[in-house]
Simulated assay, not measured.
Amino acid sequence: MRIILITPAATKSKAGNRATATRWAHIFRSLGHQVRVATHYEGQDADLMVALHAWRSADAATAYRAKYPDRPLIVAITGTDAYRFIHTDPEMTLGTIELADHLVGLHDLIANALPPAQRHKVHVIYQSAEPIGQRHPYQRYFHVSVLGHLRAEKDPLRPALAARLLPDSSRIHIHHYGKAHTPDWADKAHAEMAINPRYTWHGESAHFEVRRVYQRTQLLVLPSVMEGGANVISEAVVAGVPVIASEIEGSVGLLGKDYPGYYPVGDEAALSALLLRVESEPLFYQALQRAALAKRGRFTAEGETLAWQALLSQV
């Protein structure tokens, strides 16, 4: 098939949407399809459109459906689709969802956010990650990583606020890797570094640098308010890095309801207590690591490819 893959993220962007689109394009090509990745739809002839993000790709999906009413349309539901735009702009978001023949979700609970009449369209496809090889965690201190851009949906400074509450005896240091989406967020990160010796913001990092982080860090914290199924969880699990996450559907839908590393969204006191427990209780750290490794099998490249192969065979 000739596939047009729409993503809102520009070519050189390090945003998750661009990384996802790039990986999916590689999968489609490996399955024998022709793929064009674009940020807008300009009337290109295609047998199938895969639109990443219901709200941001609404114009593209609508234009494609108008031009080719009988050709299939797959829409991937992101975290902001499911947990923001479906409420703030239901006409556009639900309009795209209703146009779609199939919906792709990235975690097990994504259908809960959709109208009952649309849930039968959902196919859950977990995002895969590549192994990183041997890990060599830091020994001088307890390295906690936060991997995500600085924007409201990510609640990015919550780990820094939690670190302020740690006792003097703690060796925890928070290292944050991600781009500030606005100058205001950059100012906030710099201000936090000025008063918090346990927090370092490294700014935007290339993927090869992030892979080095997984080799050295002891723990990943994902503090988000909303996620559609964060690829950093896949990457951490495959790398063998334990995860602490805010208890949101996007993380529970990947790690499972019984995963022991959750804290209430926005609660830095609870996060601080959990961080201290991870650092000071080796048995708890090992339990987190085992629970994460138990999910490793769902985040393989083979599994993601087979899931897409099954869906594409239907269309």
Rank of each mutant, 00 (worst) to 15 (best):
R2C: 05
A19N: 05
W24A: 03
G32S: 06
V35S: 08
G43C: 02
Q44N: 04
Q44R: 07
V50P: 05
L52P: 08
H53Y: 10
A54R: 05
A54W: 04
A63P: 02
Y64M: 06
R65I: 14
A66C: 12
P72E: 00
F85Y: 13
F85K: 14
L103N: 06
G105T: 14
L106E: 11
L109W: 08
A113E: 04
P116R: 07
V124F: 10
Q127F: 05
Q127N: 11
E130T: 15
P131Q: 15
I132V: 15
L150N: 05
L161H: 10
A163P: 01
R164Y: 00
S170H: 03
S170V: 01
H173E: 04
D184G: 00
A191M: 10
E192N: 03
A194Y: 01
E204K: 09
H207P: 01
F208A: 14
R216N: 14
R216E: 13
Q218L: 08
V225Q: 07
E227Y: 04
A239D: 11
A245P: 00
L255S: 13
Y263I: 00
A270K: 03
L271I: 02
S272I: 08
E281Q: 14
P282N: 15
F284R: 12
A287D: 14
L288D: 12
T300Q: 09
G303Q: 15
L306Q: 15
A310I: 11
L311F: 03
